[in-house]
Design a protein around this nucleic acid. Structure first.
Lengths: 222, 222
DNA sequence: AACAATTATGAAAAATTTTTCATAATTCCC
DNA sequence: GGGAATTATGAAAAATTTTTCATAATTGTT
């Protein structure tokens, strides 16, 4: 996991970082609110551990600004306050969880992992190469914008993504996407592959769909 | 929200119930672990508030059994222990959150709502009436089978479901579904509503989409 | 290299979805 | 109840998607 620690108390921040590294994760420290927001524009984190009290924008402001910018990275608030109103409040301004100081490192890690687990299972996108398939909106998102997909193109791409790295025969593709046994007197599959390839290759430098002569198609990420 | 309170201390359970009802929710009490499991086989709840210490199976056992039965209803544990090991443990046996006693009612409610919100956003189907919209496959599932939806029908239905109970003006619908400001010299909205209504009403006895004359459309479940 | 089998592709045809149009039905308000 | 405004609807037109067709290009085999 890639963790951003936003905490102005140096000993706490560094002890957390040390423990995260030891547990096999990656962690960076931001010593105030502005630095935290700044880091987020540059690097993508899996989770943000955010102190409630910080110089240059406090946790609440930072939390709100993160959400307003459309960033949905899970946030866990670290609060020294026992004041319950703030805890309740935290969940309402877009934080995903909070931990009351003093805390044990085990508790912090368990909370972060729980929050990340929930977030990942709630995400309805599949990333591949430099593209991302939105499973709800049925389109591809790129750095440049949106690629619209027809229904058949979406179904085929999703099938490829669900089976990347394995060769899919025309028989399998036909059953899954057209719900009919493969028949050689149509070439809808080839035609659809062609159109999907075109959309992918016009928007990415990767060549995702390989042809395995005599066997089928193979989808690769890299 | 439909809430199951599993708590053996009568005053606590009943005070919680009273407060939930007052806040406009529905709540039932199970006074021990077995009763809790029993209730769950009969009624579907939105969230379970589970005391850690209970006669006839404690919170941990109940939590584990609920998950083993395939039930994914969000669970919030209520724990009198300050023992951190148990808190960490709670998240690992399938609970979604926990609250340490003593708690304020506001905190309990905020936690429950946060957990339910997260759960709902992680689910890829939206149930309404006797139908269910599959957000990935873009079709409706009924007891009798599948209703295919065109893209515009899906978008519109999802928009209705995301805003059920509130009147949506044609201006709002036009912006959201067609990405253009509403114009009275087209009637695509009416036409699409008509087609969607037809599919819904051919497959359900509910009349989901109400017309609010001069204001817009209102989607209702019941 | 030559041949057969397989895959790719542009363009046309067919099918479906989306939108428009003309008109009917309903609601609101006096 | 009558009239204006709003909404509903069937059918046609337009746009898009899906499939087919004819042919080109590529691959594996000998």
């Amino acid at each position: 996991m890639n963790i951003l620690i936003a905490e102005d108390e140096k000993p706490i921040a560094e002890s957390l970082k040390k423990n995260f590294l030891q547990a096999g994760h990656n962690a960076m420290i931001a010593f105030d609110g502005l630095e935290c927001l700044n880091q987020l524009t540059k690097i993508e984190f899996d989770v943000i551990l955010l102190d409630w009290r910080m110089p240059n924008k406090n946790g609440e402001e930072v939390c709100r600004e993160i959400r307003e910018s459309g960033n949905e990275t899970p946030i866990v608030l670290l609060t020294a306050l026992t004041d319950i109103k703030n805890k309740v409040h935290a969940l309402n301004i877009g934080a995903d969880d909070y931990i009351t100081k003093p805390f044990s490192f085990d508790e912090v890690l368990a909370r972060l992992q729980a929050v990340v687990r929930r977030y990942n299972s709630s995400v309805s996108k599949i990333d591949f190469g430099d593209l991302s398939l939105d499973l709800i909106k049925h389109h591809i998102e790129t750095n440049e914008g949106i690629i619209k997909l027809s229904e058949k193109e979406f179904d085929l791409l999703k099938y490829f993504l669900d089976n990347k790295g394995t060769v899919l025969s025309k028989e399998e593709i036909s059953m899954k996407i057209w719900q009919v046994p493969y028949s050689p007197n149509t070439n809808v599959i080839e035609a659809t592959v062609k159109n999907l390839r075109k959309k992918l290759e016009e928007n990415s430098s990767y060549k995702y769909i390989k042809t395995i002569y005599g066997e089928g198609y193979l989808f690769l990420d890299n």
